[in-house]
Amino acid sequence: MKIDVAHVAKLANLPLTDEEKKKFEKQLSSILEYIAKLNEVDTKNIEPTSQVTGLENVTREDITAPSFTQDEALSNTTSKHNGLFKVPAILES
């Protein structure tokens, strides 16, 4: 099984070196080959399980409560400006 590591890494926003791409391609291909084992299983008419204990529609009252202060929210970033997060531009001016 072939995996386009460069494409997948781009989707996942993971910067990889050329050497890493080569190494991962081999390793990921062997893992994908192994998990392809599931193709043997007949799953026709079987519902997927996502919530294993069967909880459904868990809701709570929509009430406001104290949360982080601005300082707390910014306490782990080095990328800030005037009390806000500073992010890279995504649109060119």
């Binding site: 997948v8 910067p15 991962f24 970033t77």
Partner: peptide, 21 residues
């Protein structure tokens, strides 16, 4: 790598593998 924590290049090999799978 913006709000907290370091850049995504700091992930180790196994994290990178699992993210890609």
């Amino acid at each position: 790598g913006i709000r907290y924590g370091n850049k995504r290049s700091s992930f180790g090999d196994e994290a990178k593998r699992r993210i890609m799978i």
